[in-house]
């Protein structure tokens, strides 16, 4: 018999856990929030109590300059909520501190993945497969054309472009939280020991990562150095700064962008990107379908992204699925 899981409800503002009157990643201020990770479309300020991993809480404190109501929870730690609900956080492999949340009530298990990926990332704990009855999955890159190449391949592309253009710099657009630090860590892993130059918006987050033990090597601010020093170097900036006035001071930059969207040529061209780097912190099509298969839930609920293709895949594979219409989740720059 099909169960209806009525105690957990997708609302436009987020996922509501009725017996505990508690929300996951709500887009409006609420009394009690569980937050999967620190990206601003998931972690908003102004909640009464915010439950999240210590890393996510630190990120939120940095962003909203307040730690009021913060309630840290470690990976694997189970939290008792009112109404006989319990919540356990598991690593999601998306960014530092990112978590999936397992909710248990009346013998039913629901996992909300938040954003996740399955590939190794030196800056965060790897995704764990958590068995459950309902899997609430993201679907940002849920089209079969999205198959991210190995990250080593993309890093090699970046380094060979850099080596071939010693008088120019390579300006990489990357999300200030997560993508930038992963990119730096992967560059270090590939043996690139030179200083990496940052846009001012990147600095605080990189320092936060270092505080949590992620070594990012020699980082400098573009605003602290003279233009000639940047020749032959890598500069990282938020995507919005790529083709804007800020970048005019750089020595003839080659514009790159690290994002899963770069897989599609027109997307890269629209952003005026010369060197697209297909590096994403979201699961690609193969990772999404593999995850559903491995978790093997009775039902799959699909949140933000390309629900129609994911729904179709579930239908073809005889899996019960539904698309949730949550507002406020966007990830144009990943």
């Amino acid at each position: 018999m099909a169960r209806d899981f009525a105690w957990i409800r997708p609302e436009p503002e987020g996922i509501h856990i009725a017996p505990a009157d508690c929300w996951i990643d709500p887009s409006i201020p609420v009394a009690h929030a569980l937050v999967t990770h620190g990206h601003s479309d998931h972690a908003r300020g102004g909640h009464g109590v915010t439950v999240a991993t210590p890393e996510t809480l630190a990120i939120m404190e940095l962003r909203y300059a307040t730690s009021e109501g913060a309630r840290p929870v470690l990976y694997g730690e189970t939290l008792r909520l009112p109404g006989d609900v319990s919540a356990t956080f598991f690593p999601a492999g998306h960014v530092l501190g990112s978590a999936q949340i397992l909710l248990e009530h009346a013998g039913e298990r629901v996992v909300v993945t938040g954003d996740f990926k399955r590939r190794p990332d030196p800056t965060c704990a790897p995704f764990e497969v958590v068995p459950c009855d309902v899997l609430v999955t993201e679907a940002t890159f849920a089209l079969p054309v999205f198959r991210h190449p190995p990250v080593e391949h993309e890093i090699a592309k970046l380094l060979s472009t850099l080596a071939a253009n010693p008088e120019r710099c390579v300006l990489v657009g990357a999300y200030a939280l997560g993508k930038a630090q992963r990119l730096i860590a992967e560059l270090r892993r590939a043996g690139h020991a030179a200083p990496i130059y940052l846009h001012g918006a990147m600095e605080a987050m990189c320092r936060l990562y270092a505080r949590f033990g992620i070594d990012l090597g020699d980082l400098r601010l573009v605003s602290d150095v003279k233009t000639p020093e940047l020749a032959g170097q890598i500069v990282i900036a938020p995507p919005s700064a790529l083709n804007d006035r800020w970048s005019r001071r750089l020595p003839d930059p080659i514009t790159a962008m690290a994002s899963g969207w770069m897989r599609v040529r027109q997307r890269a061209r629209q952003r005026m990107v010369e060197l697209p780097l297909v590096i994403s912190d979201h699961a690609d099509w193969d990772e999404l379908t593999r995850t559903i298969t491995e978790v093997n839930p009775a039902e799959t609920w699909i949140t933000h992204g390309r629900e129609d293709a994911m729904m179709r895949w579930c239908e073809l594979n005889q899996r019960r699925a539904r698309a949730l219409a949550l507002v406020g989740y966007e990830d144009e720059d990943d």
């Binding site: 089209l143 054309v145 599609v264 040529r265 027109q266 390309r306 129609d308 293709a309």
Partner: peptide, 8 residues
């Protein structure tokens, strides 16, 4: 769906 998104 894919062809639509990619446009080519």
């Amino acid at each position: 769906l894919s062809r639509d998104y990619v446009g080519d």
